[in-house]
Amino acid sequence: MGVFFEEDDVRDYINDRKISSESESGSEEVPLSEPSKTAVYNREGLLEKLEDMAWPENVEWIHKLNVDYDWAEEIDVNDDLSRELAFYNQALNGTRNAFEKLQSMSIPFLRPPDFYAEMVKSDTHMLKIKSRLMSEKKKIEEAEERKKAREAKKIAKEVQAQKTKERVKRKKEEIDSVKRWRKQRQQGGFARGKDMELDFGDEDGNSFERPKKKRPGVAPGDRSGGLKGKVKNKNRAFREAKFGHGGRKGMKKQNTAETTGDLRGFNRGFNKGNKKARR
């Protein structure tokens, strides 16, 4: 029994080696690099069929609305960017041609701004798209701010040095001004006059009042021990968002049209090699 088993295994193994070596030699990446010889291509039959099914030849263009566009050069399929650009160009040029034709017919073809009708995508969906765009924009802005802050930190030392220098300078100036005042008073024989008052240029006059700015820290009425403004534990919040906190779970776990379109949860690296995703 055991012997039989082993023989079988060996045969299998050999077969597998053969097949795997075949598949490794390129049939996986490009399906059938050589055309199969048994394939049918009946040109006459196709043309006949085309004649049968086609609309009469004198059909006006307005019924068809088709535009052909000649691609200047071949493009690489796996290069997403250039491929999409080519499609875009085709659409753009085709539309221009079509619009010129329509214009020459002088039929109204553009939607007036006050023409409201049902759209392909609903308003709620468009709102979602908008919010996504906004959040993306916000993210970019935040990242930029962070970057700026990092750079500011680098030059903070210099800024601090400059500030202290300025402070010293200002102090010196103030002392000087007092000295000058005293000298003036001395020269004037300490007469009572309008130069009795000290004149500091930058005095606001309300230095004893509290600054209007909100004090950092705890508000007077706050008894929560400083936890009032703070968000809950981040981890906790995320878990609650994910798994829910109370309420029915059933509805949240079902797929909807949006979630099926959403591929964020999938592992992207798996299929990286072939972007066309033929299979």
């Binding site: 068809k64 052909d68 566009y69 691609w71 539309t95 049902e118």
Partner: peptide, 27 residues
Amino acid sequence: NAVHTMEELKLTGNHLKGSRPILTFSS
């Protein structure tokens, strides 16, 4: 293959439902 539906949020356009499309074909 390479299916993307309209629900994907990356596709931001919208148009009238039932307006006649212009069909462009590569040559």
